[in-house]
Amino acid sequence: MKTATEVQVSIRSDTDIVIARQQARSFAAQLGFSGTDLTIIATAVSEMARNIVIYAGNGEITIEAAQDGAQKGICVIARDRGPGISDVARAMEDGYSTVGSLGLGLPGTKRLVDEFHVVSKVGEGTTVTIKKWRR
């Protein structure tokens, strides 16, 4: 079977979170990830998708293969055109939440992965990019 080079999931509801999570898990498995890493990737994608549903209402998740020199891995991009994050540093603090959740979505995701970037502009939306390398 040929590995798809990219998977896109549009995120609008809880059901889409489950789909994104499953897609990420099977894509990661195709890239050679296994065991705990699969669960970690699936959970990170789940957190990213959940943030889209809660804060922006809708957006999309793109899953693709990543490569940096000899390192191979997975890259996941979560994009939305929601309200944006006014204070990214604050949003990265544990327990900070504007909706009464655990406040672990962004900082928790960051701890799960190897590379983590947030680009956000108030009124324009947020893009979160993560990378996880194969060990």
């Binding site: 065991g35 705990t36 699969l38 669960t39 970690i40 959970t43 957190e47 544990d94 655990l102 672990l104 900082p107 928790g108 995701t109 701890r111 799960l112």
Partner: peptide, 14 residues
């Protein structure tokens, strides 16, 4: 609780 989930939850910080 599977080892994978336990490890993931602890990493997230729940």
């Amino acid at each position: 609780l599977s080892p994978e989930i336990a490890q993931t939850l602890v990493t997230i910080g729940v």
